[in-house]
Design a protein around this nucleic acid. Structure first.
Lengths: 150, 150
DNA sequence: TCCAAGTTGTAGCCAAGGCTACATTCTGTG
DNA sequence: CACAGAATGTAGCCTTGGCTACAACTTGGA
């Protein structure tokens, strides 16, 4: 099990409020992750084929079309996307800007992983989840690191 | 908005099933993240003060005690923790083993961030969210990279 | 000793993000 | 030009991870 007696080994722990804030931020990041994924995907589909249809989005995300449509509704409420029934999904100015930021961050994260020796497939896979937790500060550091390495 | 006409610029997109699998895995990783955070924290509290009380756990995570207790119940169902009413929380063999793995991974991720130039506070913050998405393959690569740099 | 205050546990609510099942609308082809 | 099949949309359900409010238990100090 685990140390039953009084504390033997000691461990460095962050102060309580510090730690709470960290976990809180991680939770927040998680809740914006979905919007970010959708917006980036929609932007890619638009750029790639000129249209983003709910069914394509659903298939790409590995999710039922009903789920995709529900989430697209949320994007509309958040002012990131627009869509008229049966007419495909498009991004607002804000949505396109977010997509651009997300895409750039994705690229940097993948590049960083590759630069430290992660194989390509794993880099793409892990970046998908990690990117949502990379702060601007870290992102900037990644950029500097990559430029330094050429 | 976004390219209204037929596709002008083209973008490299992964094959549909590949992309779906990536997003799916990212979703899966997310659902184990909570257990991992709890188990690591419980292990730290046990090592640090000899006991892990629900209220402490809740405060550390920045969450209500009711939420913490509910989640501890899940850990029990998953065979990661044991707890008798009013007697604090302990980890099973499996829980302790998971905690150890999670802690090690956390350390490596923070070290990697530091090594590429992320300032300490941001490294701790970002690692909190990122770590749950780092595959064993990437983890190994991180380790090699860190050793190479000394 | 005993009781007030803190801790722990329970109940019930909510929103998010999944799903299936069914209804509606489009559209390409015979 | 009609209609079958695909795409889209809607309804309703489930689980998870939050919350507040209240109830029950423990325990240190007066």
């Amino acid at each position: 099990m685990a140390s039953p007696g009084p504390s033997t080994r000691r461990i460095e722990m962050p102060a309580e409020p510090t730690q709470a804030k960290r976990f809180g931020k991680a939770r927040t990041a998680q809740s914006s992750a979905l919007s970010e994924d959708y917006v980036e995907l929609i932007s890619d589909l638009l750029a790639d084929g000129g249209e983003a249809r709910p069914t394509d989005i659903a298939r790409r995300l590995g999710v039922s079309h009903a789920t995709a449509i529900k989430t697209i509704g949320r994007l509309k409420r958040e002012g990131l996307a627009v869509a008229k029934p049966y007419r495909g999904v498009f991004l607002t100015e804000a949505g396109e800007k977010l997509a651009e930021r997300v895409r750039a961050r994705h690229r940097v994260v993948v590049d960083l992983l590759l630069a430290v020796g992660v194989p390509a497939e794993a880099a793409e896979q892990d970046a998908e989840g990690m990117e949502h937790h990379v702060s601007d500060i870290s992102l900037a550091a990644f950029g500097r690191f990559l430029r330094r390495k050429q």
